[in-house]
Design a protein around this nucleic acid. Sequence first.
DNA 1: TTAAACTTTCAGTAATTATTGAAAGTTTAT
DNA 2: ATAAACTTTCAATAATTACTGAAAGTTTAA
Lengths: 168, 168
Amino acid sequence: MEFNEAKAQFIQTWGKLGSEWGINRTMAQVHAILLISPKAMSAEEIMAELSISRGNANMNIRDLINWNLVHKELVPGDRKEYFTAEKDIWEVARRIIKERKKREMEPVLKVINQLKTIEGDQQSAEIKEFSSMINQLDSFVGKMDKSVNLLLNENENKLFSILFKLMS
Amino acid sequence: MEFNEAKAQFIQTWGKLGSEWGINRTMAQVHAILLISPKAMSAEEIMAELSISRGNANMNIRDLINWNLVHKELVPGDRKEYFTAEKDIWEVARRIIKERKKREMEPVLKVINQLKTIEGDQQSAEIKEFSSMINQLDSFVGKMDKSVNLLLNENENKLFSILFKLMS
DNA sequence: TTAAACTTTCAGTAATTATTGAAAGTTTAT
DNA sequence: ATAAACTTTCAATAATTACTGAAAGTTTAA
């Protein structure tokens, strides 16, 4: 396969995967471009590469920076801003997991905790079923939370060596 | 908190979480209702509970069945179809992971494999960076794939006992 | 068969989400 | 201070995604 075709397919695939996981397709595509770029890129270059407007480029780059996946790079003697992506894919995964945990898991944990005590006839079938599900979720999400913390604190090899033990 | 308020908040939260992860909000809400219902529900009951149309209810219930999270239940002497959700939350998680792996991880693996060999000057900075990223991804996704297979084949306790070892 | 009871489909519409582009804002060099 | 070079914002618009409801399809009982 020719390089330009491969590049286009990579950007396409990364964008599709992002949108399937609730991430703006363009943001994922900007990320893809930066992941495979050997040098820092300016907003202009990103706009040209994806045929998107300045505003769109600016917002998605800002979002990527907020996700801690991309950072600004200053070139001495040049007023433009340049952008580079974290290239270590394990580190990329950790940062995405960390961010989603903070944005989505923690609010859910909070709600579940509020729902653990409800008023009313504790013998009614509805309340019994509801409480049972909330308790299951509380336990499950708590365990997940701990597991994710481990993932975030350990390195790749340690984790996979443990998972390898699980196989045997 | 009163039961009806708690129930509304649970449905709301589950729906929001779903939409943040690329799942139709209504589908997640239908799932939430069934998760906490002590009995199988008819399409009518679901429609009423969420104030949605018959068509919408039908499509989202069908999707939940395709995700293997909900199944039909027949009541003798009644022509209506009733629906129940899998109630074991660990099993729910396994089915969601299994489905997303099939729908999203496997296609990505296929593309990555195609992109491993590209034509052109292998010494150019662009091609070197691209190949390096593809190789990293290939290795990473391969490991994830194996790990997920383990998760799907082991039970909850085994998994968490292993993760617990990781903590020490 | 027939028709009542139910489920599914899908064209039209509504709601949501993403994008544009020009104006406003900021920074830097002189 | 000024203006050139750049970045950010956001109202208007476009694109995408979800929903409705009525018509078509299916199943069952008599």
